[in-house]
Design a protein around this nucleic acid. Structure first.
Length: 388
RNA sequence: GCGAUUGUAGUUCAGUGGUAGAACGCACGGUUGUGGUCCGUGAAACAGGAGUUCGAUUCUCCUCUCUCGCUCCA
C-alpha cells in the first residue's frame, strides 16, 4: 500500500488545478501552443548528446518485452527536437505534465513531479524578455513574492577562460561557483583550490560595473534594458550557473522571497539550441508552487436533499449544473446530508420534499448562517448569482 | 547513491519480552424534514523478512521507508 520513494498520492489536488489554470491561461496570453509528448522514450534519446551530464544518471530506465532500452522522460526539452521540426519560427509551445528523475528525495524534491514549461524555438534576447515577463505575470497572479536571478553562460565562460580555466575544469569550476548562494565563501574557496581557480572568486564578488569589461556583458545589459520595457526587474547574479550543460546563453532561476521553508528553485530556465536553432525556455515546478501560491480554491457548490421527491430533485439539480454551479443530490437522512455538506464545505443546501412540491417553491438553507428561505424555482438563478 | 536518523490505526501520539491504547477523523445509531454540540457502538495499526527466545511489536541483522546533510535539481 505504500507509495514508492519519491512518488506520492495527492488526495486533494484542487489547489494544483487552480494553479495549472492560472499558468495555462498566461501561457496562452503569450501565444504559446499546447503540446503533449510520450512519457516513455528510447533511453538514447532521453540521455541525449551529453552523456557526461550529471542528469543522465538520474534517468529512470526500463525495458519492454521486446527488450528495447527505454526511459521515462527526465524533462520536456529534449522532445522539442522532434516537435520543433519544420515549424515556422518562432515556434512557441507549452507543456504541462509529469517528469521523472531517479534522484535523492529531500525536502521539496520528488522523483515524480509536474513541470510547466514554455519554450520559444527561434528566440532572441527580445523574446527572452517576454519569457521573463511571463514569469513575473504568473508569480504575481499566484500571489508569490519572488526574485528572478539571471546570468549568462557566455559571460561565465569568458570570465573563466580569462583566468586560465578551461577544458573539463571549466564545468567543475562552474559547479563550485554555483554554490555561492548556499555555501560560505570559505567553503567554496577551499573547493576551488582543487582546480587552482580560487582567484575567480574575487571576480564574482565585484559590482556589476566591473563586468562591463567583458564582451558578453552586453547580453546582460541588453536583456536588462528590454526587460525594463516590460517593467520586469531581474537580478544579475554573476555566479549563477545552472546544472544542465546545454545552456549556452542567458540562464534564469526564480526563488521565493517569502518565509515558507521553500528554499528550492521554483522555476528555472535559459537559452539553448534545438536542432541548431537558438531557443529559450522556462520551467515551473508545480509541486513547489503549490506550497507558496495564494489562490482561492472556493467555488459555488450546492447539495440537494431529496425527501422521496427524486424526480423534482434531479430536475433542479440538472438546472443548477446548467447554471455552472456544482451540485449533487443526497437521498439519505437530512442530518447526514448536512453533516456531509459541512465536511466538504458545501455552503448551500436545498430541500425538496412534499412541502416544497405543494408550495411550488424550494427551500434553500445557507449553511454558515442557518438562514432558510423558500424561493421560486425560476428565481434560482438570481439567488445563486447573489449567493457567494 | 553515500552518511546520520526514523518507522505502532487514515492522522497525531502512548505502550509492552506474554491479549496493543488514546485523541481526532471515518462508519452506524440515539435523531427516516434540518448540520457544526453531546452520548453510545463499531471498523481500523506494531513497514517487510530472517534470527535469538517457550514466546518478539519490543532484542539482533537485512531490506524497505521517513527526515536531514552531501552530490544534483523544479
Amino acid at each position: 500500500m505504500e507509495t514508492i520513494k519519491g512518488f506520492r498520492d495527492i488526495e486533494n489536488a484542487s489547489k494544483r488545478r487552480v494553479i495549472v489554470d492560472v499558468i495555462e491561461n498566461v501561457f496562452k496570453l503569450y501565444n504559446f501552443q499546447a503540446v503533449e509528448t510520450p512519457i516513455i522514450e528510447n533511453e538514447k534519446f532521453v540521455v541525449g548528446d551529453n552523456p557526461s551530464d550529471e542528469a543522465v544518471s538520474d534517468v529512470f530506465k526500463l525495458q519492454d518485452k521486446g527488450k528495447r532500452k527505454l526511459a521515462l522522460r527526465y524533462e520536456f526539452t529534449f522532445q522539442l527536437k522532434r516537435i520543433a521540426k519544420n515549424k515556422k519560427l518562432p515556434f512557441k509551445r507549452y507543456q504541462i505534465g509529469k517528469v521523472f528523475r531517479d534522484e535523492p528525495v529531500t525536502g521539496n524534491r520528488w522523483r515524480e513531479f509536474t513541470q510547466c514549461d514554455a519554450d520559444i524555438v527561434g528566440c532572441g534576447l527580445k523574446d527572452e524578455s517576454e519569457i521573463l515577463k511571463l514569469i513575473s505575470d504568473i508569480m504575481n497572479k499566484l500571489g508569490i513574492k519572488f526574485v528572478i536571478n539571471f546570468n549568462n553562460r557566455k559571460l561565465l565562460n569568458e570570465i573563466l577562460e580569462g583566468e586560465g580555466v578551461s577544458g573539463k575544469d571549466k564545468v567543475l569550476v562552474i559547479k563550485e561557483i554555483d554554490k555561492l548562494d548556499k555555501l560560505s565563501e570559505k567553503e567554496v574557496r577551499a573547493n576551488l583550490k582543487k582546480f587552482g581557480a580560487e582567484k575567480v572568486l574575487k571576480i564574482f564578488k565585484e559590482k556589476e560595473s566591473y563586468f562591463k569589461k567583458y564582451k558578453s556583458y552586453s547580453e546582460i545589459k541588453d536583456l536588462k534594458d528590454i526587460c525594463k520595457l516590460y517593467g520586469v526587474k531581474i537580478n544579475f547574479q554573476p555566479f549563477l550557473a545552472r546544472g544542465l550543460s546545454y545552456y549556452n546563453g542567458s540562464i534564469f532561476e526564480v526563488k521565493t522571497l517569502s518565509k515558507s521553508g521553500v528554499k528550492e528553485t521554483i522555476a528555472a530556465g535559459g537559452s539553448y539550441m534545438v536542432n541548431g536553432v537558438q531557443s529559450c525556455g522556462i520551467s515551473f515546478g508545480l509541486d513547489r508552487l503549490e506550497l507558496l501560491a495564494k489562490v482561492s480554491e472556493e467555488y459555488k457548490k450546492v447539495l440537494i436533499i431529496s425527501f422521496n421527491q427524486d424526480k423534482k430533485a434531479i430536475e433542479v439539480c440538472e438546472k443548477i449544473r446548467e447554471l455552472g454551479v456544482g451540485c449533487s443530490v443526497s437521498y439519505g437522512k437530512p442530518g447526514k446530508a448536512m453533516d456531509y455538506a459541512n465536511s466538504y464545505n458545501i455552503p448551500l443546501v436545498i430541500f425538496i420534499g412534499e412541502d416544497e412540491i405543494k408550495k411550488k417553491k424550494i427551500k434553500v438553507r445557507e449553511m454558515n448562517s442557518g438562514k432558510e428561505s423558500f424561493i421560486l424555482e425560476s428565481k434560482l438563478e438570481d439567488f445563486l448569482g447573489k449567493f457567494g
